[in-house]
Design a protein around this nucleic acid. Structure first.
Length: 699
RNA sequence: GGAUCCAUGGCUCAGUUGGUUAGAGCGUCUCGUUUACAUCGAGAAGGUCGUAGGUUCGAAUCCUACUGGAUCCACCA
């Protein structure tokens, strides 16, 4: 053995050996052992991994390796996500560099182009997972758009539709005129901005608005019922300037009497609050801005103008007509597109919705019954809060990259026919033969919400029965509401069982100062660079050591380097043990000759117990620290220093301690320990060696 | 406005059924070191655990209020 551990010499070779050995695939159950399963949160197929991925790899791989060593049939199922909006956006940026846009291509061509683009990149992510040592079962790898996955998702949609849980809803959506798509509220960036607030004379009443170009779509003026100054106006009419249309004055407690004049013009087609008020008062919808963000259905002169340009014109005309009372500056939050940061246009459109209440009810019950447990209580609280407040789920997306919704509209009676994916021969209502498919695709979370059961049902025969419900869902807290609760909803709906028994949520990786990592801050930590520089083991240990799984962690190169030094320490401990001429490989028997021997053996017992206990409670930081302290402080600094003058006598104990130590450390630092295992002369691989038993010991 | 969380040595964090002297890594200081490792070893300094009350034989830990901070959701015409 060289005096220093050089990870570059061993890591890729070791990974190949593991892969070749078949250790990543679950072994058939020989003794009624309960399987341990994690479905990997699929990274985006077209993106390289970031440091956050490295954290989940470290955490999940520790759990997987631990349970594999305990002899459980262990499955870690990898995959990749088509990440609809994100990927299409990246692809469109690429297109625009070539001076093209998606409007240059037909739908099918564009889809094929994105597919090929993603295929080019998907290997990158897979190789990086291997670099990090992920011991997942590549033979079961899934892509969210694999045909058999699509089939499952279509089936679920059809079932939901047949059960009356899908409806065509008229909803106000945050429509981006440039992206040509509607975004969910979660995808909207709220930006602080200074704007003008225009006070407009509506005859009986003066209203305040930041969007005078939408006055042509007004259908009412609303005031707060508590607002004394307007009480007498309720039931009377106000007059929209420039077009002189009269609209009723109504009352609604969503109106803030302190804002502007306390009177709100109601424009249900172009504002979310107004839409809500319009719904409850059964007001009509008038739209004056089309999906490209241009004026329509207004007085002739504005038609075709972009909304912002029209605003200037309308203000001029209002001023000329003497209807502009005053203009104030206002500082407020505006919803903008998270992709291009331009204005979003709240627009009414017809889309598919899922009634969530029947689904969330069952999830809440499952949480209450502990069918699904959250490792950290705080995340259970957050999940419950979300489940109780979730609004109906809009699952239509106006993009190409994704699963096209299997809904076909009859051109004669305009009714929808929903299928499992196949093209219907005739309309289910009027039997007419001409139907056209909804151009929209499913929200990515609708398909990935089915990931755990879909991957297992389309895997090897018996996988679903063997591995569902899975053991642990491990993912970051930022997608708890998007993904985790959707998986619970759709998993319980589709299979009658929770998709996973435990939820382990991890925090974000932050920089040394605890700041969020972002490209603009320039504090990006590339996991592959770190793995190459310090070794995958050091990176993994650095991501686990010190902080709780559930917390955000502050990661610095110093911290990773500290773990590299630890790796070197372990290496040299092994060097010391095996250098002795008396060293023999298969000596599992040991004889304690004195108090020091008894002491280290006793400490090993305690450590084994503590590491095991901590792993069972997902307290990986504790487990890591226990084994770290045992090796460095107790084994190396104390015991080895003391036995230097009686090495031969202590050899059996040294062997035994090293052997056990490597087993305990293996889940955390798999490459290093596997290599030392080999240096010790072991024939079998450490990855499938047995976890040191603690059950035999009292307490 | 609603929700969740955090506040412990210079920095980043542990401390999860309330129980001796509050721990670790990094940093600082002192000393040592020709073979397992200088990628090292031995030792030291450094904390009235955000503030104020309360519960208790006993509180970093439980309760209340306050102060400061983080994140998420909603809304702001």
């Amino acid at each position: 053995m060289e005096p220093q551990y050089n990870h570059k010499l061993f890591e890729s070779e070791i990974y190949k050996k593991w892969e070749k050995s078949g250790a990543f695939s679950p072994h058939p159950t020989t003794h009624n052992s309960h399987p341990f399963t994690i479905i990997m949160p699929p990274p985006n197929a077209n993106d390289p991994l970031h440091i956050g991925h490295a954290r989940f790899v470290a955490i999940e791989d520790v759990l997987i390796r631990y349970h594999r060593m305990k002899g459980e049939p262990t499955l870690w199922l990898p995959g990749s996500d088509h990440a609809g909006i994100e990927t299409q956006y990246v692809f469109e940026k690429k297109l625009s560099k070539e001076g093209k846009s998606r409007f240059n291509y037909e739908r099918d061509t564009l889809y094929k182009m994105i597919w090929d683009y993603v295929q080019e990149n998907t290997g990158v992510m897979e190789n990086q997972l291997k670099v990090l040592g992920a011991s997942c079962d590549w033979s079961r790898f899934k892509f969210t758009l694999d045909p058999e996955m699509v089939k499952i998702v279509y089936g679920t949609f059809k079932n939901l539709y047949d059960d009356g849980l899908v409806y065509r809803g008229e909803r106000i959506v945050n429509h981006c005129p440039r992206c040509g798509t509607a975004y969910s509220q979660m995808e909207v960036d709220s930006v602080e901005r200074d704007d003008n607030l225009y006070y407009l004379d509506y005859g009986t009443i003066t209203i305040a608005t930041t969007r005078p170009e939408t006055i042509f779509a007004d259908v009412a003026v609303a005031v707060n019922p508590k607002d004394e100054k307007y009480k007498k106006l309720i039931g009377l009419y106000a007059t929209i300037p420039l077009i002189n249309r009269t609209v009723p004055v109504i009352e609604d407690n969503l109106v803030d009497e302190a804002f502007g004049t306390g009177a709100l013009k109601i424009t249900p087609a172009h504002d979310a609050t107004d839409f809500e008020i319009g719904q409850s008062h059964k007001l009509p919808l008038i739209s004056v801005i089309d999906e490209k963000g241009r004026m329509t259905g207004t007085p002739e002169k504005y038609i075709g103008m972009k909304a912002l340009a029209a605003r200037e014109e309308v203000v001029k005309d209002l001023e000329a007509a003497g209807k502009l009372v005053k203009v104030e500056k206002i500082h407020h939050l505006v919803g903008t597109c998270y992709r291009d940061h331009g204005n979003l246009e709240p627009t009414v459109s017809k889309q598919w919705f899922i009634k969530v209440e029947p689904l969330t009810k069952k999830v809440l019950l499952a949480i209450k019954n502990k069918d699904v447990r959250f490792a950290a209580k705080k995340y259970e609280k957050i999940a419950i809060h979300w489940l109780k407040n979730l609004k109906d789920w809009n699952i239509s997306r106006q993009i190409v990259w994704g699963m096209r919704i299997p809904a076909y509209r009859c051109e004669k009676c305009m009714e929808w026919t929903i299928t499992n994916g196949q093209i219907p021969k005739e309309c289910s209502s009027c039997q007419n033969g001409i139907l056209s498919q909804d151009p929209d695709t499913f929200d990515t979370w609708f398909s990935s919400g089915q990931w755990p059961f879909a991957t297992l049902k389309t895997g090897e025969k018996g996988d679903f029965n063997n591995f569902y419900p899975t053991s642990v869902m491990e993912t970051a807290y930022d997608i708890l509401p998007f993904w985790v609760i959707r998986m619970l909803m759709l998993g319980i709906y589709s299979t009658g069982k929770v998709p996973f028994e435990n939820v382990l949520i991890h925090g974000l990786v932050r920089d040394k100062e605890g700041l969020k990592i972002s490209k603009s801050k320039g504090n990006v930590i590339d996991p592959i660079d770190m793995a190459e520089k310090y070794g995958s083991d050091a990176l993994r240990m650095g991501l686990i050591w010190g902080e709780l799984v559930e917390s955000d962690i502050a990661l610095s190169e110093d911290k990773i380097n500290g773990q590299r030094r630890f790796a070197n320490k372990v290496w040299n401990v092994a060097r010391f043990v095996t250098q002795n001429s008396q060293y023999k490989v298969h000596s599992t028997k040991y004889i304690a000759k004195n108090e020091d021997d008894k002491w280290i053996l006793d400490e090993l017992k305690k450590t084994t117990h503590e590491v095991t206990r901590a792993l069972d409670k997902y307290r990986l930081n504790e487990a890591a620290k226990e084994i770290y302290e045992f090796i460095w402080n107790k084994f190396a600094d104390r015991y080895i220093e003391k036995v230097k003058d009686r090495r031969e006598e202590a050899q059996t104990v040294l062997n035994y301690i090293l052997d056990s130590t490597l087993r305990l450390l293996h889940p955390f630092m798999p490459f290093l320990t596997e290599q030392i295992w080999k240096e010790m002369g072991q024939n079998e691989l450490l990855i499938v060696a047995a976890w040191p038993l603690t059950s035999k010991w009292p307490k």
